[in-house]
Structure formats: C-alpha cells, structure tokens
Amino acid sequence: MILINDVKTKLSDLVQEVSIAQRDSFLNVEPISDATEDSLVFANNEKFLKQALDSAAQVIVTNIKLKELCSESNKSFIFANIPDLLVTKILQTYFYSQKIAQQKASVSKSANIHESANVHESCFIGENVVIGKNVQIAENCFVGANTVIENDVQIARDTEIHSQCFIGQRTEIGEACIIRAASSIGSLSMFHFTSDEDGLGKVVLKNFVELGSQSCIDRPTRSETFIGESCKLDNLVKISAGAYLDNFCLITAGVQIGHNARCGKYFTVGGNSFIEPNTVIADQVLCGGMTFVDRDITEKGQYGGMPVQPMKDYLRSMVSLAQIPKLRKILKTNA
C-alpha cells in the first residue's frame, strides 16, 4: 500500500494539499471506469471529477481549483496545480518497472570490465562493452553493445544505456534513465582550455531522464552539468559544459544549449533553437521552434523569434513581414 502522506513528502514540489478521509493509502492507479476501493484515480476537470466521485475509488488526484467541489465527499484527495504531471510522477516513483528488452541478466564474454568495477548480477552487459575502474552499476541495468563507460561512473537501478554510447568519467546517472544509441555523456568539449586532472568536473542526470540518439552532454573541467529529474531530451540535442536544466524540462530535436546556461522548471523549447551561454531562463517558459535566446527570460510565458521576444510580439512581427511586398507595390504605385 502507498501512503498518501508519503506521496506528499516525496513529491512535495507537485502536491499542493492533501485531504485524508476514510482511506490514507492506495494500492494501484486505475482509469475511473476500472477503479476499485484500493485505486487512485485522476480527474483533471469537473466532468471527470464527477465520475470519480461516483466511482469506487477512495483516493482522487485532481486540480486544486476544484477543491470546493470535493468538500462534501468522504473520499481522500491529493490536490495539485498540474494533476496530470503528478499522476505521471506517482507512476514513475511507485510503479515503474524497467523491462530490459526481454534480455536475461548476463555479461558478454567480449566485455572488458575492470576488476574494481561493481556490476550487479541482475544487469545485462552487451558485447564489446568497456567498463572502467571504480564504476558502480546497480541492479536491473542494461548496457548495449560497444558502449564505453569510463572510470568512477555511478549508474542507479533500472537504467538503460543503448548501443555505442560513451559515458565519461565521474558521470552520475539516476534511476530509470534511458540513454539512446550513439549518445555521449561526460566528454570534454573540444574547446576546453584547462586540465581535467583535478577530477572535479562531472555530469549529473537525476532520475527518469531520457536522452535521444546522437545527443551530447559535455562535462566541464571544474563544475557540474546538471540535468534535472524527468527531463526529456530528443535526438541531436547538445548540452554544453556547465549548463543546468531544472526538473521536467522538454528539449526537442536539434536544440543547442550554451555553457553555463540555466533553464528553470518545465522549460520547453522547440526544435533547432539556440540558447546563448550564461543566459538564465525562468520557470514555466515555452520557446517556439528556431528561437534564438540571446538574453535572460525573467517571466514565465511563451516566447519565440530571433532574437527572442514574447510570442505575441513575434507573431505580430511575422504577420507584418508578410505584408512588405504588398506595401512595396503600393509605394511604387504612389511614387
């Protein structure tokens, strides 16, 4: 059984309030139509909330804005500003069960594993994998063929690293991450100018991060490149050394984020955009595709354009540009 108060503690950044009545726990997460007394269900609007109140479920996740509609019910409630995201996190935190491509736990005979490395017996290690000294790989991990894992790397449980990946030294990868084929994490940028002998620089990926194919996250020499919990990075993404992505960011294909840039929670950016080095982006910012972020964004909202501007201004500019040929004809006629 999963205690409601445990959810409140572990997911405190998403849970706004809880109201506990007859049940203080739940056993599973089900659609409203299939709910039992042991179920938690999700209702993000008044229509579904009414159905949830009429169902057998005794625990309901819903929007904090609907709190007044729940006041007369004898069910227990978990209120959130973004209830669908909270349910996703509950599923990830309590019910996630990584399936390692139906592979049985085994270590390929062609794998080269340093004697000081600690690889859990439940892991699958593919052909020609190289694992350096002092590497720690927890249970139920999958490492695909021809992957290189350098010294002092730590990989938490239920993580998948697909074929032909590179994991640089001192990288820390959290639970249930997915690193897709031919990606590089923790390599030094070709433009670094200081020695890495002091061993301070590293890349940190928190739990539930997904990285698309042929993406790259660079390692700084004396600081940290940080990717927050539940961030999703598409194919061909470049994260430069020292960048910081807070939790729940969504980075689509072809995006480049400059060194030491800081992106707040729930940052979403469209394809082929560029974030200038050292820029700071507030929480809950959405940038459209091909946006050039050349300055700090201090307020949440939607942005776009080159250079970046509020989305409303950007769309107005695009409409105006489309009228230039017509205006030229008018000017020639009146000349």
Results as ranks from 00 to 15, higher is better:
residue 186 G to H: 06
residue 151 N to W: 05
residue 157 R to K: 15
residue 199 G to C: 01
residue 144 G to P: 02
residue 213 S to K: 13
residue 190 M to C: 01
residue 148 V to A: 04
residue 235 N to W: 09
residue 129 V to W: 00
residue 191 F to N: 08
residue 191 F to H: 08
residue 182 A to R: 14
residue 158 D to T: 04
residue 229 E to Q: 11
residue 236 L to K: 07
residue 154 Q to M: 13
residue 207 N to D: 15
residue 193 F to E: 03
residue 144 G to A: 08
residue 228 G to V: 09
residue 231 C to Q: 00
residue 180 R to I: 02
residue 189 S to G: 15
residue 148 V to Y: 06
residue 131 I to C: 10
residue 161 I to G: 09
residue 132 G to V: 07
residue 140 N to A: 06
residue 220 P to K: 05
residue 173 I to E: 09
residue 224 E to S: 02
residue 228 G to T: 13
residue 230 S to D: 00
residue 190 M to N: 08
residue 150 E to S: 03
residue 137 I to P: 08
residue 219 R to F: 10
residue 147 T to S: 11
residue 230 S to Y: 03
residue 226 F to Q: 03
residue 224 E to P: 00
residue 187 S to D: 11
residue 130 V to F: 05
residue 222 R to G: 07
residue 238 K to E: 10
residue 145 A to Y: 00
residue 130 V to A: 10
residue 223 S to K: 03
residue 190 M to E: 09
residue 178 I to W: 11
residue 160 E to N: 15
residue 236 L to F: 14
residue 195 S to G: 12
residue 216 C to P: 05
residue 197 E to N: 02
residue 223 S to L: 12
residue 163 S to N: 08
residue 175 E to N: 06
residue 233 L to K: 03
residue 209 V to A: 08
residue 214 Q to H: 15
residue 224 E to L: 03
residue 163 S to L: 07
residue 142 F to D: 00
residue 153 V to G: 00
residue 164 Q to A: 14
residue 208 F to M: 12
residue 211 L to S: 14
residue 140 N to S: 09
residue 186 G to S: 13
residue 160 E to W: 14
residue 139 E to F: 14
residue 186 G to C: 12
residue 132 G to I: 02
residue 188 L to R: 06
residue 128 N to D: 15
residue 223 S to R: 03
residue 225 T to K: 06
residue 177 C to V: 15
residue 164 Q to Y: 15
residue 238 K to I: 06
residue 192 H to T: 06
residue 158 D to K: 10
residue 214 Q to I: 15
residue 225 T to A: 08
residue 234 D to S: 10
residue 215 S to G: 14
residue 173 I to P: 09
residue 233 L to Q: 04
residue 231 C to H: 00
residue 131 I to R: 07
residue 137 I to F: 11
residue 237 V to R: 02
residue 218 D to T: 01
residue 160 E to P: 14
residue 227 I to V: 13
residue 224 E to I: 01
residue 175 E to V: 10
residue 199 G to E: 01
residue 186 G to Y: 09
residue 132 G to S: 08
residue 199 G to D: 00
residue 169 Q to F: 05
residue 140 N to D: 14
residue 127 E to C: 05
residue 187 S to C: 13
residue 149 I to V: 15
residue 133 K to I: 06
residue 129 V to Q: 01
residue 213 S to F: 05
residue 133 K to Q: 11
residue 152 D to C: 01
residue 219 R to K: 06
residue 170 R to K: 14
residue 172 E to D: 02
residue 135 V to Q: 06
residue 174 G to H: 05
residue 126 G to D: 04
residue 187 S to G: 14
residue 165 C to E: 13
residue 182 A to K: 14
residue 221 T to G: 00
residue 140 N to H: 08
residue 199 G to I: 03
residue 183 S to G: 13
residue 154 Q to N: 11
residue 177 C to A: 14
residue 168 G to L: 12
residue 212 G to W: 00
residue 134 N to D: 10
residue 174 G to M: 02
residue 203 V to M: 09
residue 184 S to N: 12
residue 127 E to I: 01
residue 136 Q to M: 12
residue 125 I to Q: 04
residue 209 V to M: 12
residue 218 D to I: 07
residue 218 D to Y: 02
residue 193 F to V: 01
residue 207 N to L: 05
residue 129 V to R: 01
residue 178 I to L: 15
residue 214 Q to S: 15
residue 237 V to A: 02
residue 142 F to C: 02
residue 202 K to F: 04
